[in-house]
Computed example of a mutant assay.
Amino acid sequence: MPATTSRSLPAGVTLRLLRPGDGPALAAAYTRNRAHLEPWEPARPPEFYDADRQAELVATELRSHDDGRSVPFVLERGDRIVGRVNLSDVVLGAFRNTHLGYWVDASLAGRGVMTAAVEAACAHARDDLGLHRVQAATLLHNAASQKVLARTGFERIGTAPSYLRIAGRWQDHALFQRILHDD
């Protein structure tokens, strides 16, 4: 998806690429959703929620995007960032694979926004990046995220013990994949 292109989603939300000036809006979004996200993400130091730190992270993500290693999307409603969708670890060659990560603002959970955003990200991976496969992982008890994956064509392929350090401890994850091409 070129930087000037965006996609409309339910509830007046737009999916677009991350931009250089998004640091303050991301800091506000993470601060607003801190309690909502803490059970599902790595433990964050206090400076993670600062606009300056988010601006640094934006710059890092944009370099990764420029190098073809990732696609950092944001969900925007009006002038507020209300979520993220990331395609990371993009690998070409014989693998043609990426990892999917996402979150949505607590006020928009359960309204179809993330389902539409994941579908759009997968279409981008297939149509614009030419990828064959998208993989995702959720905590075993994250039923809401697993429903999003099921609704968007992902299949569960296994369990990874102690897969990621989430909420301060190594936790098991359910692994999912979506095959984008049959050939």
Rank of each mutant, 00 (worst) to 15 (best):
A160L: 10
L92C: 10
Q177A: 09
H36Q: 08
T152Q: 14
A174L: 04
D22E: 13
P46H: 12
T5I: 11
G110W: 04
E119L: 04
D172N: 07
P2L: 11
H124C: 09
I157F: 08
P42W: 06
D172A: 09
A29K: 11
N86A: 09
A150C: 01
I166L: 15
D105R: 00
A150K: 13
D128G: 13
T14R: 15
G12F: 10
G21V: 02
G78Y: 11
E76Y: 02
T4W: 15
V85Q: 05
Q54Y: 07
Y49F: 15
V71W: 07
V113Y: 11
V74P: 12
Q146R: 14
L37H: 13
A25W: 08
G153N: 06
A51I: 04
D50E: 15
T31H: 04
G93P: 07
L164W: 03
A55G: 12
G83F: 02
A143T: 13
G168F: 11
R53I: 03
S145H: 07
R80Q: 12
F176Y: 15
D50F: 04
A160Y: 01
A28F: 10
H124Y: 13
M1A: 10
V13M: 01
Q54H: 12
D128I: 02
A109D: 05
D183H: 09
T159W: 05
I81D: 10
H132Q: 08
T5F: 12
A59K: 07
A136G: 06
P45Y: 13
V58I: 00
D182I: 02
S162K: 11
L108T: 03
D67P: 00
Y102I: 01
R44P: 04
Y163T: 01
M1I: 00
W170E: 13
N97M: 12
L180E: 11
H99S: 09
Y30L: 07
A51K: 03
R96A: 14
Y102N: 04
E76M: 01
A94C: 06
G112M: 05
D52C: 03
G23D: 14
L139F: 06
G101I: 02
S70Y: 07
A35K: 10
E56I: 00
A43W: 11
G168Q: 09
V113C: 11
A167Y: 07
M114Y: 14
G101T: 06
R165E: 12
F154K: 05
A160P: 04
L26H: 15
P39T: 12
I179W: 14
R7E: 14
R80M: 02
N33R: 08
A109Q: 15
R126N: 07
T138V: 05
V91Q: 14
L26D: 12
F48S: 02
D128P: 07
Y49C: 02
R156N: 10
A106Q: 15
V85R: 04
R133C: 05
L100P: 04
P161C: 03
N142A: 03
L75E: 12
A27E: 06
E119A: 15
R96Q: 15
A59L: 00
R63D: 15
S107K: 00
E119D: 15
T115H: 09
N142Y: 11
L17P: 14
L57N: 09
G112E: 10
F154S: 02
